[in-house]
Amino acid sequence: MTDATLNNIKLAPREATTWQRLQVNRNWLGLWFMLPAAAFLILFLAYPLGLGVWISFTDARIGRGGDFVGLENYEWLWDDTVFWLSVFNTLLYTIVASAFKFAVGLYLALLLNQNLPFKAILRAVVLIPFIVPTVLSAIAFWWLFDSQFSIISWTLKKAGLISTNIDFLGDVWNARWSVIFANIWRGVPFVAITLLAGLQTVSPTLYEAATIDGANKWQIFRHVTYPLLTPIIAVVMTFSVLFTFTDFQLIWVLTRGGPVNATQLMATLSYQRAILGGHLGEGAAISTAMIPFLLAAILISWFGLQRRKWQQGENND
């Protein structure tokens, strides 16, 4: 009888139009919600990247759309010693600066994680190099490294350690180490503060447990702190490597790639060839040549970021 009643009161369903069905379709709705983000990504990331890669296959110059020339730009670069020098410089710059940023950043993070007086102020102070605009700090370094007015040379001379000014930015290796130093100075806060955040997620009782288990300070770091910090190290060092590899501002203000291309990085060379030299295609090819390196860095981090076995499994709290 119930069935009969139900059948009686059931309304004959009207055939829903496609539009009506779409209105209640969750997947369709999801697509709409994703649209702004997708538009943003396509417009500001995918399109410029695609365009850059495309231009690298053309002989475009400023003010003149180019024709497709295939791999010609890359063939040119293959035989270009300045390009290979810039690759070497970029790798040296990235590897040395990142290694130091990691070491100093980790050290600072461990230091700031202690119960120091004026802890909050010290943490804020550490962030200063990161807050100052790159160009501003680069100009300050420019003065520090000036061949005539450098305060470093002045101090060393007054101390009687040297007799003539150091040519920080005029000598090939001096210039390289100088820009690397400036980059480290700027990059350390980011690493330090991020690792500090990671350190603060480590429960203090783990240190106490390790102390009672008989671990000394180094063993606690080696067996407890460091393994627990690896996930955040993977993230922060990936970002640090990417930022360093693509650095432009600091070099451009300090040396413009000089002397004799000793500090020419791929990013600065690309700008020089494409914008200043007008060879858009060649510049784009240099930029595109950075992609494999960046991809490698991202892949390393991707594997580093994989959830480790100890992070897996159900949390039964």
């Binding site: 009782t205 783990l206 106490e208 447990a209 009672i212 288990d213």
Partner: peptide
């Protein structure tokens, strides 16, 4: 602590 020859069980277990 390590020379005292004591072992401690913590409230939150403190397992590595």
């Amino acid at each position: 602590p390590k020379e005292r020859d004591v072992a401690m069980v913590f409230q939150n277990y403190a397992l590595y």
